[in-house]
């Protein structure tokens, strides 16, 4: 087996294209939505009465403890059962796959991010709540002006880290046939059994994107948390 450098270089273009058009889009959109949802879950778990809070916590646990591929297939199956493909005839299948993918990734990782927010909120000293109460601030204002800004500081690096984890999970989109980078690599390599080259390039692209980001998060963590 020779490593066909020329072929490897040829695949860089199409793989980067798939990376930018699908992998990155899903990661960024998924992370943003997950960060918002996670915050909502975390606040709900503090504010809602127990009879609502417990079922919510249980549902979040189930989502966090079951596999992404299963959830992706589930989302597509629901979409099919509501006859979705016929209702949106103008939207192409790949776009629908991506939208479903973003939704599933966002919900899945929001359960992790909720835990990070909770830890951040728990780390705020009781005195902050008491001071806000002493000023007769309304509850919503306490959250927005006092608690969330402080909690965010401690939570931000964790959110970033979960986003990186999500990024590395994007190849799971393969199970619902979304043409992200690894799917593209498999397709390019399969034509001539030149898997070594394509997966090396795909791996390197992952490494090149995730390693610097992870290092950045570690620096951020040192700066913000300690």
């Amino acid at each position: 087996m020779e490593f066909d450098l020329e072929f490897a270089l040829e695949t860089v273009g199409p793989l980067l294209m798939a990376f930018l058009q699908v992998t990155l889009v899903v990661t960024v959109a998924g992370s943003v939505v997950a960060a918002l949802l996670g915050l909502i879950w975390a606040v709900c778990q503090r504010e809602l009465p127990t009879p609502v809070r417990l079922p919510l916590s249980w549902v979040l646990d189930v989502i966090r403890m079951t596999p992404l591929p299963l959830q992706l297939l589930f989302a597509v199956a629901i979409f099919i059962s509501f006859d979705g493909y016929r209702k949106f005839p103008d939207t192409d299948v790949e776009t629908i796959g991506m939208i479903l993918g973003v939704a599933v990734f966002a919900i899945h990782y929001s359960t992790y991010m909720a835990e990070s927010y909770r830890a951040g909120i728990d780390s705020i000293r009781q005195g902050q709540w008491e001071a806000a109460t002493a000023l007769s601030l309304p509850r919503s204002r306490v959250w927005r002006a006092v608690i969330i800004p402080q909690a965010l500081r401690a939570t931000l690096p964790s959110l970033g880290n979960w986003a990186i984890a999500m990024f590395k999970d994007t190849p799971f989109l393969l199970v619902i046939l979304v043409p992200e980078m690894v799917a593209k690599a498999k397709q390019l390599g399969g034509a001539s059994y030149q898997y070594t080259e394509v997966f090396t390039v795909a791996g390197l692209i992952f490494l090149a994107a995730s390693y610097p980001t992870a290092v950045l998060m570690r620096k951020l963590e040192k700066k913000l948390v300690y």
Binding site: A202, G203, F206, A214
Partner: peptide, 20 residues
């Protein structure tokens, strides 16, 4: 290396590349 290059890519290496 193993943290940075996605589980699926590593698995495909074992499954598709190693046999070569």
């Amino acid at each position: 290396f193993f943290r940075g290059t996605s589980l699926v890519v590593q698995l495909f290496f074992l499954f598709y590349v190693f046999p070569l």
